[in-house]
């Protein structure tokens, strides 16, 4: 009646049950394959699935790390547009402080643009 339960014991039991729950279907599938349904792997079946086409080359290709520059440039303009539109809509009711804060923000982004310009990123050749 008054048995004391330790919570660690419960966690342990649940851990074992969870493991069994996950592993049992795999084991049953293995046994089923051994008794009835033979496994038949093959070159096509084991190949990478690419919508039915044969894969041409290795899927793990490398990208040039210099692309981060384009990513930054995109971000500059992207963020700018997102914030400039509501800024323009609400411009009439804005206080001086808010306008100044917005100016600082835009200047920060312009600084990024100037930096990219100086590095020559804007030359698309």
């Amino acid at each position: 009646m008054n048995a004391t339960y330790s919570s660690e014991l419960f966690i342990g039991i649940f851990l074992v049950l969870a493991l069994l729950f996950a592993l049992a279907p795999l084991v049953v599938a293995r046994i089923w394959a051994g008794c009835f349904s033979p496994q038949k792997p093959g070159p096509d079946k084991n190949a990478t699935y690419e919508c039915g086409l044969e894969s041409r080359q290795d899927a793990s290709v490398q990208f040039r790390s210099e692309y981060y520059l384009y990513a930054i440039l995109f971000l500059v303009f992207d963020v700018e547009v997102v914030f400039l539109l509501p800024f323009a809509v609400a411009f009439g009711q804005l206080s001086v402080g808010a306008s100044l804060a917005m100016l600082v923000f835009v200047l920060l982004l312009v600084e990024g643009l100037a930096w990219a310009w100086m590095k020559g990123v804007l030359r698309w050749t």
């Binding site: 349904s37 079946k45 039915g52």
Partner: peptide, 14 residues
């Protein structure tokens, strides 16, 4: 047709 056959091959039995 080759793609159809390859897709069929890639399906597990049954």
């Amino acid at each position: 047709a080759p793609q159809v056959v390859r897709l069929y091959n890639q399906m597990p039995e049954p």
